[in-house]
């Protein structure tokens, strides 16, 4: 699983990401971007391309494989 976020303050709707990784990014109207915040592992290479191609560098992709520092028990230890 790959997590991502887009800094939509930076995004200017160039849509490079929507061409390079259409399963993850899609334009919504003329300018707005919708994206899947979590993509399948199979998308990793396309995501890297999309992030690299973004003219304003607005695509943030996981740089850490699995957040090993969030132990399951910390998450499930909720009351």
């Amino acid at each position: 699983m790959v997590r991502l976020a887009v800094d939509l303050n930076r995004c200017q709707g160039y849509a490079q990401c929507a061409f390079l990784a259409p399963d993850v990014f899609a334009m919504h109207g003329d300018e707005a971007l919708l994206y899947a915040p979590e993509a399948d592992e199979s998308q990793r290479a396309r995501l890297a391309q999309a992030a690299a191609a973004c003219p304003v560098q607005a695509v943030l992709v996981d740089a850490v494989d699995v957040p090993a520092d969030v132990p399951d028990e910390a998450v499930s230890g909720a009351r």
């Binding site: 790959v2 740089a63 957040p67 090993a68 520092d69």
Partner: peptide, 10 residues
């Protein structure tokens, strides 16, 4: 499935 991407290990 909206967890934030991790930019580096914390």
């Amino acid at each position: 499935r909206t967890a934030l991407p991790r930019l580096r290990p914390v």
